[in-house]
Design a protein around this nucleic acid. Structure first.
Lengths: 204, 204
DNA sequence: TTATGGTTTAACCATTTGGTTAACAAAGAT
DNA sequence: ATCTTTGTTAACCAAATGGTTAAACCATAA
């Protein structure tokens, strides 16, 4: 930064505030004034640093996505067996999301609003790819380690089981008639029960 | 209706247009003018029939929810075995949602925005409850038909596997690098593969 | 025919909202 | 010291938006 930086990182404060507001209310529901208030600064500063609501939003979105991507890379591109991958991913992912509960819904929602964001993000270096995972599933099926299953379907199943409860939290709380504490307990149990559920289904 | 009803159901046209716009853009993103345009009528009519954006939205939301609820009742409150329930629900649900792809995301999104909507809806008569399903799972586990599993966890797994791909369609298309046609084909396959996946996991 | 009352429209209104501007403050740089 | 660049603010602006109003429309009953 060639900037004089008289302040103590106003730019960062803005990004934090924007993250909080955008993730809770989405692009359409978020208000620039609310972000400014939460950052404790003048609204004009938002435009000084980020030009427009759109650009500020994109900064937040990229940031959020680059938090999630490495999590996926774990299951897609390390060298352990499918069984270990499922166990590790499920445990790590649920732990991670419990700390960032707004993240998955935010990304899914905004991707629905504008599917072209995906391409924008995809150019990122560490972008996860499915090839290795699919090959590995095929191998383990051939070796007789796994029952016959399509790698893509398995991938969709894994992320569905892990992510959905965090995306649909109010729905699940409602149907199960449980409060926040019980929900957290249930997610804690899922760190194990989900991987058991998957392994049970695919292991020969 | 004590109304003269000179028109051919303007009220219905409004509701249809509102459904389409709200489900695509959400409460915050939807514009009253856009709804009026899509209905082919004057904006003032929206207020004439529904008073406010909020009330129009609630009409759409209730409507949407009462489409989904009976689908869930099928798995929760009929008399077939768990295995048959899983098979039927998976097949029926994916078939149903393929015809209303915006529905699950709309409901989940707006429930996230305002969790109190759940209570509002819950007073509905045909509201599904989990008790019977949980008892049935316990029974079949005791009888040795199913491996030990918690009914609530199983329920969450079932709806996760069925609903998530429709909520996160752009994400899945992106990771799998597939177009709309391939996505539809994949969902078609899931009508069978998801229930196999679940049954494999829980059946003794 | 003409009153009546629900229905429909164009024009209007107040507020909200993203964004701009001009003036000012705080650091360097010269 | 003063000049220049960067950071910050209050006041302002134009457009968009949800909502209102008053007049017109039109089917029907008296």
């Amino acid at each position: 930064m060639a900037k004089t930086n008289k302040n103590q990182d106003t730019e960062g404060q803005i990004l934090n505030a924007a993250e909080s507001v955008f993730q809770k209310k989405g692009m359409d529901g978020a208000r620039m004034q609310e972000i400014a208030d939460e950052a404790g600064i003048n609204k004009a500063m938002l435009h000084y640093y980020y030009r427009s609501k759109q650009l500020l939003f994109e900064a937040v979105f990229s940031n959020a996505f680059s938090l999630l991507a490495p999590q996926l890379n774990k299951i897609l591109n390390d060298d352990s067996s499918i069984e270990d991958k499922v166990k590790n991913f499920t445990h790590n992912y649920i732990t991670f999301i419990s700390k960032h509960p707004y993240l998955p819904n935010f990304i899914i929602q905004e991707l629905n609003r504008n599917p072209k964001f995906f391409e924008k993000i995809q150019q990122n270096a560490a972008f996860p790819t499915l090839e290795k995972f699919k090959n590995q599933v095929n191998e383990e099926v051939e070796k007789g380690i796994l029952k016959p299953i399509d790698g893509e379907q398995l991938f969709v199943n894994i992320i569905s089981l892990n992510i959905f409860p965090f995306v649909a939290t109010p729905l699940i709380k409602g149907f199960l008639k449980i409060d926040d504490k019980a929900f957290k307990k249930m997610m804690e149990e899922r760190k194990v029960s989900v991987s058991e559920f998957i392994i049970n289904s695919i292991k020969k």
